[in-house]
Computed example of a mutant assay.
Amino acid sequence: MAKQPYRVKDVSLAEEGLKLIEWAESRMPVLLKLREEFEREKPLEGWRIGACLHVTKETAVLVRTLKAGGAEVALCASNPLSTQDAVAAALAMEGVNVYAWRGQTTEEYYQCIEDVLSYRPRITVDDGADLVATIHSKHRELLGHVVGGTEETTTGVIRLRALAREGRLGYPIIAVNDAYTKYLFDNRFGTGQSTLDGILRATSILLAGKTVVVAGYGWCGRGIALRAKGMGANVIVVEANPLRALEALMDGFQIKSMMEAAPLGDLFITATGNTDVIRREHFERMKDGAILANSGHFNVEISVPDLEQLSVSRRTLRPNVEEFKLKDGRRLYLLAEGRLVNLAAAEGHP
């Protein structure tokens, strides 16, 4: 097992974290109802769960419920910038083996995954499939030990289905993202609202009258586009799938390629689960002052390396807002390092 029972930024933040969790619990009656059942029946007695999730106040409510069911839980973050440090401290004080803090380096992030796996979990709970991928690449001895898992994101399910197609997925995993309650509500309404929440917290801009380019018209993209439209923005959708593009058109949005949209957008939001959706040739066409945000799980949808190569300087103007000055004097603004803006710059889904 890991040398330390937990690693968090500051355990003195625990009292603040308890209040945040209390607030989340007051808005999560269904999970609390399940907790009552779990406390009576102890269905997870003796089971060890390894979780790689965004360490937020809502996740804390889930972890408390798993513990109420008898489980032992080891938890790490599923993104280096999404941890709420006060919540992590509170969980640590409640006996959760939590390894997470905001602002982790890449090395620290993956070491925390190793810390969780050192507990030899029987069940995995993943967000983005980094925990499962690490088991398959570095800890194959656990494949016969883990009995099953869950994956809750579109991006993670894509990764796992690729493993399954190749015959390399070592144990069964439930694709939570396929549940109606996940994509119809959490993706559409949760991501739709929290993405704009993160952008507005980071930038304090007025959306009304702005041209917002949404890349991807899956359930997350639908929610983002609808809410941006509701706040008065002119929305352009970029979508490679012709049926989804037609749906967006009939929902009242303009449809363009990214090359066509690049010179028009004031704000660009990616939600595709793909790589390099916005890249060099698009940056070269953007107007001065354009803002770039990502709502996909990984920081690969906006090509930060291309942006760095085109720039002569970069500086942080305010928390989660980085200015890249291009050779011709234009300035582009990247939010939250290109990571998922709803958690890095806000608090995730309400």
Rank of each mutant, 00 (worst) to 15 (best):
A88C: 06
T153A: 10
R27P: 10
L31C: 07
L243H: 15
D306H: 11
W219V: 07
N187H: 09
T203N: 12
K3Q: 13
K19R: 15
E72G: 08
I174H: 06
G69S: 06
A248M: 11
L332A: 07
K327L: 09
H145I: 13
G329I: 12
E337C: 08
I278V: 13
F324D: 01
T195C: 15
R48T: 05
D126A: 06
V147T: 14
V125H: 00
M28S: 06
V213Q: 00
A261I: 05
V237W: 00
L66R: 00
K57M: 11
E107P: 15
E15T: 11
D328T: 07
A162P: 07
Q84G: 04
T124Y: 04
M250K: 12
G218Y: 04
R159G: 01
G95L: 01
K33T: 13
H54E: 01
I174A: 08
G209Q: 09
F253G: 02
D10T: 09
G149A: 08
D266M: 03
T211Y: 06
M258G: 02
L32G: 12
L243F: 09
L160R: 01
L131N: 04
R27S: 09
A92C: 07
L317I: 15
E141I: 15
E166N: 11
T195I: 14
H349T: 15
P242K: 10
I302M: 08
N294E: 06
G95A: 05
L53D: 01
T191A: 12
L184W: 14
P242E: 15
M250R: 14
K325H: 12
R48P: 01
T83L: 05
A202C: 13
R339N: 06
K210N: 12
V147W: 12
F298H: 10
T65S: 03
A202F: 05
R331D: 10
T153L: 11
G223V: 00
I123N: 02
E284W: 05
K19L: 13
L81I: 05
L332P: 02
L332K: 02
A271W: 03
C112N: 06
Y119C: 12
E114N: 15
W23M: 11
L18G: 14
P80C: 02
D288N: 15
C112A: 12
L66W: 00
G252M: 11
K210Y: 11
Y6Q: 07
L249G: 10
L207G: 04
H145G: 10
W101S: 01
H136S: 08
Y110L: 10
L142E: 15
R222V: 08
